[in-house]
Amino acid sequence: MEDAEMIHLWKAYDKRLEEYLSFNRQNAADITHMKVQSALASMTPLKIFAVMAGIIWVILVDSILIHTFRSASFFFLASAGIQVLLTKLAIGIYLYQLILIQRVNINAPILETQEKLCQLRSSTLWCARLLFLQLPLWTTFYWNQSMLYNGNVWLYLLQAVVTGAFTWAAIWLFVNIRYENRDKKWFRLIFSGKEWNPVIRAMELLQQVTAYR
């Protein structure tokens, strides 16, 4: 099929639309009167809530760390310290997303808008990576000197296996949660579900956007 033929076909389609496509003016007028939020704007309150909750958590944990610095065990201080640091990074990602939401302009050229939307959605994957990185900290914070000096070999062994497995899993997931692994079984298992599909598709589109540049 030649170019001219393709254009001719499209024009025939266009002519048909011109003749038979009706515009429901009342319906369109009703749409303009509806109080609707864009999908993006509707994300903002939840992200602001997450940032506020995160800040409260950080203040709380930081206060506990400061007040118990001399009395608490080294394990608790280190575990809580790293956990709160990772939470601060997650808050940083949410703030970055809030900035991106403000910067998305639906009037802008397609590549510019889609790139920002894709960055916004795919940055959610970073939050998941940070969340998994916290895993081993939940197996160490309760340890203290008494357990260290008075424990038996089985306790040490069990703790080493559990903490070691969680650390290995956390690092492995942090390194491997990437778009390139989207087709792997374990990835699909973790990121199955409605809330993750837009994130994965956004990353696919981001690749298209990059190829168009």
């Binding site: 048909r16 639309l17 038979y20 496509l21 009706s22 515009f23 429901n24 319906n27 369109a28 749409i31």
Partner: peptide
């Protein structure tokens, strides 16, 4: 209803 309708 939709704002656009094809009659044919």
């Amino acid at each position: 209803d939709s704002a656009l309708n094809m009659t044919d």
